[in-house]
């Protein structure tokens, strides 16, 4: 008992250090790579577009932990949380630090949604470069356990007959929650622009609305729906994965199985500043490639209900451009952009 008490004290000290440290993590490094010194020579600042405790923060911290636990890099990785601004201030670092190699930026599909919505002029290629897509979550369509609907195709059928037959809840707009519904509807021949989609600010609130019977169905990340699904409170009718998953999602049919040809990846990835030196980009591509192959990363994925997904550089960039195109078309059709 004495030992664990001492442990608590040590942990507390660490906590205080962590807390005081967070607000003063400084801008790491300067300048490009020096040919003489092997990259990375110093600290790397990993800026993440989210507040502590949020999805992107967790993403960055899991990467930091896995890299250090598996000794995959000599660089010391410092995480900076740049909350707010829809993630734009994070990507702005890409422009400010063009040509440098000591900054990594963690973000999600907002890198293309924000330019589409016109809230930023920061764009991929010009202001930041893709390094690697490291994992994804899949989005699900869920109803209450007493709902008459038992499959995703039934829902689509009902919507084909009357697009207002169901009220649909999502977290925010625009988001993968919303695009998931729009894309599935489109693939199933439903007039996507007429759907009654209501946003409820957070995944937790969304589930409350579903359980309370305020909305008929919701579109949300699998991990958020999991607790209620396992408790038998909700039924998950479809998941946006390309093929049937293992683990707790193994009982959930994909859209493709239900003849609705749609896959939505709610991915998270790492970017670098504009004109990041090729050696640095290569270094991180390789390091991340090693990381995603480790058991430790497999544990991280399992613990957080994330699914494996790995693409680097150009492949990653191509996917983003493809998604941006689809997203822009759909958002235009529902009138969110002109």
């Amino acid at each position: 008992m004495k030992r664990s008490a001492r442990f608590t004290l040590a942990a507390a000290t660490a906590a205080i250090v962590a807390i005081t440290g967070v607000s003063c993590s400084s801008n790491a490094g300067s300048g490009g790579t020096d040919g003489a010194v092997e990259y990375p020579s110093g600290a790397i600042e990993f800026a993440t577009a989210g507040d502590p405790g949020g999805g992107l923060d967790l993403f960055a911290r899991q990467i930091q932990q896995t890299l250090s636990a598996e000794s995959l890099t000599d660089a010391q990785i410092d995480i900076t949380n740049i909350g707010g601004g829809g993630g734009n201030p994070t990507m702005a670092l890409g422009r400010q630090r063009a040509g440098t190699a000591e900054t990594l930026l963690g973000n999600s599909n907002r890198v293309y949604l924000n330019p589409i919505m016109g809230t930023t002029d920061l764009t991929m290629g010009k202001d930041f470069v893709p390094i690697a897509q490291l994992m994804t979550e899949y989005v699900v369509l869920a109803v209450r356990e007493d709902s008459p609907f038992t499959s995703g195709s039934q829902v689509m059928e009902a919507l084909r007959e009357d697009t207002r037959a169901l009220t649909l809840g999502v977290g925010t707009v625009p988001s993968d929650d919303q695009l998931h519904l729009l894309r599935a509807a489109e693939a199933a021949g439903v007039a996507a622009e007429d759907l009654n989609i209501v946003a409820f600010s957070s995944g937790g609130d969304l589930l409350t609305q579903l359980l309370g019977g305020q909305v008929d169905a919701i579109s949300t990340g699998f991990s958020e729906a999991l607790p209620q699904y396992e408790a038998g409170e909700i039924r998950i009718l479809a998941i946006s994965a390309p093929e049937r998953l293992d683990g707790p999602a193994s009982g959930i049919p994909t859209w493709i199985e239900q003849d609705v040809d749609v896959v939505v990846e709610h991915w998270r990835g790492v970017f670098g500043p504009a004109d990041m030196p090729a050696t640095a980009v290569k270094y991180w591509e390789d390091t991340f490639e090693k990381m995603v192959a480790t058991d430790a990363w497999a544990d991280v994925l399992e613990r957080n209900q994330w699914a494996p997904l790995f693409r680097t550089g150009d492949d990653f960039g191509a996917i983003i451009e493809e998604e941006a195109e689809t997203g822009e078309r759909l958002l235009r059709s529902v009138g969110l952009i002109e």
Binding site: A12, A14, P52, G53, G54
Partner: peptide, 13 residues
Amino acid sequence: STTVALLIPVAFS
């Protein structure tokens, strides 16, 4: 909420 989040790494130990 921020503080609790910052304690997460400590929680591992």
